[in-house]
């Protein structure tokens, strides 16, 4: 029982970080109908921005984190939209997908060339301590990761539902034409979605890198999981992405502990295929009502 609690908690903790990346994925999908195959690299890269801040520019950690966040929003949000997504929108969906795949190679190889192929130690945000709760040994880092990601998700939901800008963003996502008629600056709303995606990816990066270390190839797995979490939860729902992320985090840990370590990576994939078979709109998603 104690072991089960430990496994569950650490699953929820990594799952909540996956959820952050998956939400970003969903936002960009809603705003610009863009499937970003470089999402994993978007989570890999900000950790290196922080390392550059700390090691090359001599910043204290807190300043480096802010530096990393802002740089991510500029590079992975603004520049991604202006340089890659916008010029390609008139060409249709397929070239853009291919371009994001190429972008993922570019970011990965670029990081490898300029920062090295070895995993870099990454400063943790929380103490590496553990505490005992009802016989279960719980890592403080796991608890804090879970709390911080949940706080980010709650904040984001409040922003989207309670503020004028957030509602405008939702309107833009649902029907750009109608939103435009009602006086919403849709271009700006789409830009916000890209900026928020970059920020979420950066935050996920800051939380997960102390666990996985900062490595150029981290994105391969993270991107796939964010992707799967978004789909099984429901591609067009934020709460779907959260549920999907948590579910994968927990299942992954449970399988690795109790069933098979060799095939732990297969679980999300099988889940993905099962969801597409039986409930293609996702566990919490609503059908988009598009037939063709």
């Amino acid at each position: 029982m104690a072991q089960f609690l430990q496994v569950l908690l650490s699953g929820l903790s990594t799952g909540s970080i996956y959820a952050l990346a998956a939400i970003g994925f969903t936002l960009v999908w809603q705003a610009a109908q863009t499937v970003n195959f470089a999402q994993g690299e978007f989570v890999m890269l900000p950790a290196f921005f922080v390392l550059i801040g700390v090691h090359w520019l001599g910043m204290p950690l807190w300043l480096a984190l802010i530096f990393g966040l802002i740089l991510s929003m500029i590079v992975l949000g603004l520049l991604f939209k202006v340089l890659i997504v916008e010029p390609m929108l008139p060409n249709g969906g397929l070239p853009l997908i291919i371009a994001t795949m190429a972008l993922s190679i570019l970011l990965k190889e670029g990081t490898k060339q300029f920062y090295g192929a070895e995993a870099q130690p990454y400063p943790g945000l929380f103490p590496q301590a553990t505490m005992t709760l009802g016989g279960a040994v719980i890592s403080v880092q796991d608890v804090m990761n879970l709390l911080v990601s949940l706080a980010i998700v709650v904040g984001l939901t409040l922003f989207l539902n309670r503020t004028r800008t957030g509602r405008c963003m939702q309107a833009t996502a649902q029907s750009p034409a109608v939103a435009e008629i009602l006086g919403v600056n849709t271009r700006r709303m789409v830009l916000y979605a890209f900026l928020i995606n970059a920020a979420l990816a950066a935050l996920a990066s800051f939380l997960i890198s102390p666990i996985y270390l900062a490595k150029f190839s981290n994105g391969e797995n993270l991107g796939l999981i964010a992707f799967i979490a978004a789909i099984i939860g429901g591609f067009n729902q934020i709460r779907g992405a959260i549920a999907g992320g948590l579910l994968i985090g927990v299942l992954d840990n449970l399988t690795a502990t109790y069933i098979t370590a060799e095939y732990r990576a297969a679980i999300p994939l099988i889940l993905l295929i099962a969801v597409i078979l039986w409930k293609p709109e996702g566990l919490l998603g609503t059908s988009e009502g598009r037939n063709v």
Binding site: I84, P87, M88, N91, G92, L94, P95, L96, I98, A99, A102, L103, I105, L106, E109, G110, K112, Q113
Partner: peptide
């Protein structure tokens, strides 16, 4: 040397912009 994949990826992105 190691820059091959970067050059290649950039070329693909540019190609997709100008000739999908």
């Amino acid at each position: 040397e190691g820059y091959y994949l970067m050059i290649y990826a950039t070329a693909v992105i540019v190609l997709m912009v100008f000739s999908p």
